[in-house]
Design a protein around this nucleic acid. Structure first.
Lengths: 133, 133
DNA sequence: ATTTATACTAACCAAAAAGAGAGTGTGAAA
DNA sequence: TTTCACACTCTCTTTTTGGTTAGTATAAAT
């Protein structure tokens, strides 16, 4: 019995390099993150923006999450952060090419969701109906 | 000040139907879920499998998460669950066409991650280096 | 002299998600 | 007769996540 998650049995779904896999999961988890997706969208549609302008365009986000998400995106090279040394502070965020390309890669999933919206909702209703009965 | 997340100002990134958007986020959040992705992969590579066989192929997953994730996938129409009324119980899970198509839609992101792995890691090292300095 | 704007960080708290472990029903094998 | 396999469910605890609030520096505007 392999209780150690580090240990992989030969039966483990395993032709893929675990390093790649980790990064893939990681990246997808981050991008699929509610806010990251929205921020990519906003930055793509409106171009370079400063902190408060972004916040205004994303209702419901807290300062904390905005900062956190932008930092993460910066760390991954999805945005560049430009500090203008003026007072009051001015910081601008811009999508990098990498950020843009990630947005595009995600279009596949996005359009899948649009295309199969009805199917999924029908499946859900069916399942919920069966469960109630 | 619009503190109500339901209320959308005209400046809100807003040409998209919010119903579609909600479902898209929802779906992506679910698919991007660590386990769902892995389960799609396993079921795709190995075909119809029963509960314990799946568990063996996914080290680190708890019974709880396996059940939960499979149920969610079933509800969304990504898998079908077949109960064989024997004892001890035998339940098999199979990817639906919808499930397969979702896996394919996700390939774009998957390959993006593979293609840009180096870029992302470099960006991270740069960021972390700057932070330490 | 007080207020305002900006882009944050830090501390604290509540809620949600996930893990661990025990329990369940049943028939066949030992 | 005890044990075992299977596919769970239930409960309890831990971890993670996110929100809220307060605070900071500084110069310009009032």
């Amino acid at each position: 019995m392999a209780t150690d998650p580090q240990m992989r049995s030969p039966e483990t779904y395993g032709e893929i390099d675990p390093r790649i896999e980790a990064l893939v999961h990681d990246l997808i988890a981050q991008v699929a993150d509610k806010w990251t997706m929205i921020l990519i969208e906003v930055l793509h549609d409106h171009g370079e923006q400063r902190f408060t302008r972004i916040a205004e365009k994303v209702p419901g986000i807290s300062q904390k999450m905005l900062t956190q998400t932008l930092r993460q995106m910066e760390r991954n090279g999805l945005v560049v952060r430009t500090i203008h040394p003026v007072v009051p502070p001015k910081v601008e965020y811009r999508l990098t090419d990498l950020g843009v390309s990630l947005g595009e890669a995600f279009c596949g999933v996005w359009t899948w969701a649009e295309d199969h919206l009805e199917t999924v909702e029908t499946a859900r209703r069916g399942f919920d109906g069966r469960a109630t009965a």
